[in-house]
C-alpha cells in the first residue's frame, strides 16, 4: 500500500502508484482527479473558483479551474504522464445551502463544474465519471493502481466511480 497524499483547499498534488490522493470535505469546490492508466501517474486538483482571468488577486493558481488544471497537467507530465492518454473523474460542486433567489454567489458550485468541464474539453481530456452538484459535501479518494475514485458523504453510502 502506498501513502495517501492529502490535497487541501485551493491545492493540487500529483503522485505515482502505489501512492494515492485524497481531499476532504469538498463542498462547492470541485475535485478533479486525472489519471494516466499506462504509467499510473495521477493528479488531483481542489479548485474553488472557475476563472483566473476574472479575478485580480490570482497568485495561487491552484485556486482556479483553468490555471489549476494547466499546472496539474504540467506536473503530471514531469512524472511521466502522457497528455493524450489522460482521463478525468470529477466530483463536488454542490450547493451547500438551499437558497432561493438568483444571487450569483450561490451558483458557484455549478459554475465550478462547468468551468472544469470546459477546461478539460479544451485540453482534450475525457471525463469518464462524475459525481457533481446536489446539496451535500463529499470526501474523495483516488487510487492510482486501479483508477477508482471513492466518494464518501455524510449519511450516504460510499460510492466508487
Amino acid at each position: 500500500m502506498g501513502v495517501m497524499i492529502k490535497v487541501g483547499m485551493a491545492d493540487l498534488k500529483v503522485c505515482k502508484a502505489p501512492d494515492n490522493l485524497t481531499t476532504l470535505g469538498l463542498g462547492s469546490c470541485v475535485g478533479a482527479s486525472i489519471y494516466d492508466p499506462v504509467t499510473k501517474v495521477s493528479g488531483m486538483l481542489h479548485c474553488m473558483l472557475p476563472d483566473s482571468t476574472k479575478i485580480a488577486n490570482n497568485q495561487n493558481r491552484a485556486k482556479f479551474a483553468d490555471s489549476g488544471l494547466d499546472d496539474l497537467i504540467a506536473d503530471m507530465k514531469k512524472l511521466g504522464a502522457e497528455q493524450s492518454r489522460l482521463v478525468a473523474k470529477i466530483a463536488g460542486g454542490a450547493q451547500m445551502f438551499a437558497f432561493s433567489g438568483n444571487n450569483d454567489m450561490l451558483r458557484v458550485g455549478d459554475r465550478n463544474v462547468e468551468a472544469v468541464k470546459a477546461k478539460l474539453k479544451a485540453l482534450r481530456i475525457p471525463i469518464i465519471a462524475e459525481d457533481t452538484g446536489l446539496n451535500y459535501g463529499r470526501t474523495i479518494e483516488f487510487y492510482s493502481e486501479t483508477g477508482n475514485l471513492i466518494i464518501k458523504s455524510v449519511g450516504k453510502e460510499t460510492k466508487t466511480i
Binding site: 470535505g25 469538498l26 463542498g27 451547500m96 445551502f97 451535500y136 459535501g137
Partner: peptide, 10 residues
C-alpha cells in the same frame, strides 16, 4: 448540516 470543509467552502 454537513462536513466542516464542505460548509466552509461557501
Amino acid at each position: 448540516v454537513d462536513m466542516a470543509g464542505a460548509i466552509l467552502s461557501v
